[in-house]
């Protein structure tokens, strides 16, 4: 999965978890929680939903080190995607 695809999914996830947030106003290079009202529990739910949509598991030790959304997007894009691997055979 490339970063654009992951960002698209992330927009959907944000819309489901925090519909009040306008994703287009988030600067993904800046710390997320300095920009929007997202607590650690919301962020956990974002990670869980992203996992559901991509099949990519992000360990807590990584989650704790992300300082902005770009790092999450890059990390996720670098992982093999189980969902994509399955699709050609279906």
């Amino acid at each position: 999965m490339n970063t654009t695809q992951i960002k698209e999914l992330l927009i959907q996830v944000f819309h489901e978890i925090a519909p009040e947030i306008d994703f287009s106003k988030i600067d993904t290079a800046k710390p997320l929680r300095e920009q929007v009202e997202i607590d650690s529990f919301d962020f956990y739910r974002i990670i869980v939903q992203l996992h559901q949509k991509t099949g990519i598991y992000v360990p807590d030790s990584k989650v704790m080190e992300f300082t902005n959304l770009d790092e999450l997007i890059t990390y996720t894009s670098e992982q093999p995607s189980p969902h994509q691997q399955l699709s050609p055979g279906l």
């Binding site: 956990y44 990670i47 869980v48 939903q49 996992h51 559901q52 598991y57 360990p59 807590d60 030790s61």
Partner: peptide
């Protein structure tokens, strides 16, 4: 502890993920 949680979570479905 984090390694242990990681091992658990790898094998759990996303919605059952254990929170640290």
């Amino acid at each position: 502890l984090l390694k242990w949680v990681d091992e658990k979570n790898k094998n759990l479905s996303p919605e059952n993920r254990l929170l640290v």
